[in-house]
Design a protein around this nucleic acid. Sequence first.
DNA 1: CTTAAATTCGTGCAAATCGTCCAATATGAA
DNA 2: TTCATATTGGACGATTTGCACGAATTTAAG
Lengths: 280, 280
Amino acid sequence: MVSRTLSPRELAEVIGVSQSSVKRWVDAGLIGVSRTAGGHRRILLADAVSFIRERNLDVLRPDLLGLPPRESESGQVIELTADRFYATLYEGQLDAARSMIVGAYLAGTSPAEIWDGAMAPALRRFGELYHHEQTGIFTEHRATALCQEVLAQLRLLMPEVADEAPVAIGAAPEHDPYVLPTLISDVVLTSGGYRTVNLGPNTPTQALEQAVEVYKPAVVWCAMVSPVSSVRLAELTATLSTVAQRAEVVAVGGRAAEAIDWPAPILRCGSMRDLEAALR
Amino acid sequence: MVSRTLSPRELAEVIGVSQSSVKRWVDAGLIGVSRTAGGHRRILLADAVSFIRERNLDVLRPDLLGLPPRESESGQVIELTADRFYATLYEGQLDAARSMIVGAYLAGTSPAEIWDGAMAPALRRFGELYHHEQTGIFTEHRATALCQEVLAQLRLLMPEVADEAPVAIGAAPEHDPYVLPTLISDVVLTSGGYRTVNLGPNTPTQALEQAVEVYKPAVVWCAMVSPVSSVRLAELTATLSTVAQRAEVVAVGGRAAEAIDWPAPILRCGSMRDLEAALR
DNA sequence: CTTAAATTCGTGCAAATCGTCCAATATGAA
DNA sequence: TTCATATTGGACGATTTGCACGAATTTAAG
């Protein structure tokens, strides 16, 4: 059974301080907390993670957070690099991949930085592998599935966004089958405090319009990898331009968005950091 | 199973404490209560809610607080669950959807039963909605994305499989873009104790062959929704037949696999329970 | 109605946490 | 260095919590 709350003693063990300090910090409002009817403190996992990230604390006991134990012998934190992450994906090791990503997140790296710095480069290498190596096709498919799972699980550690938070809506255009670009955009915008609605890959322009109509979003994103026919591109551009009159930010990104001249209000992002920066 | 009143055990699960504590609080007058003739405590939903609100308690299992259903016979419980899950997906509520699925899993329902009983019927309704309703396209996309996330997160709760466990490999054929069928198969096989390798949608037959070569799996599954051309079908059938000489179980499933006569060693599964049953 | 399985009853007890105080250890300015 | 200040870790009795136990009650199925 996975416990979703921590006692002061448990959080103290995780970060290697005394219970007294945790209790004091909680009482000072530095850590989110709720109380049992008897007055005992109960700390939500997401609140603990937020606190650890804000203060740049080391995680000595990841197992108490429901995460796999650290694998390095020396107790040193393994730095997340594109090469190491690529090697892990190439081996198909889900647990190792997850602890690398979660570890980087706990250390304070933003999801956008994690993607741009490690995940995107690693996945790009799989794309190249696709053409050169015998087993390239299957390793690339496996890596994609692993990344999907890791990103979905990462969101469990992120603080919940308020119901009144502005909404961000995104999708990939029709005939674009790639799941990961919309998923990481979703994660980045969630970490930016937006309530996200991800319509996923292969979404007709009309469906995006419907969603915009319903949610009145502050942000709309479109992740484009596969080339788009000129007819559909015109349709998409028109829709996004209309949307831009109401939304604060309308962003497009991905390989297929690069060579295109987007009209003024539409922002083209070359990376997830660009997207993050576009939200002030 | 959901009633208008809660037992101490149920309320304890909702807020993440032991039933002993709830019983003490009730006896101390902190929670309104009525008793059965035999002396068992019955907590009105309204009393539970006001208690939770007074104390600002975190609700870990909101599904147990679901609206009181009308008197229903046991045979209709599954249908009712599918309806409620559909409604939750239709509203786009990730948290509620997750706690419904996780709640069922924690209550002992197997992933296969969860899929067959609630998720699959709900998603089927979205497929029909696609054609009838204005906003059908976008709600269907959103529902798919939510289910993906919920299933990925569900795996965090499942016990880890041993490194020496037999391997199961699966995929959806080339040009089949659907993510969920391979994902739920992955989850079902993981819960069955297999180390899974999910190659995801749109996987060329060749890639499946490569993966089989590398892993020597005990189980191979193929989830087919989109119709497959006869040429590719012949290719796929040949590959699966070859694989079946080494693997213990080779299973196919999905709408596109129904009308096809599969040669003897290949097993066609009409549901996730079928797949589960095929594993002895 | 009868029976068997599952749940809850009340109770007692060991472990964990409460709030508070105090000594020990940085931190920083005169 | 010296002194004032802030932070930390530990200790204390009182309170709260979680678990175990046999007995009683409820629920589900014939």
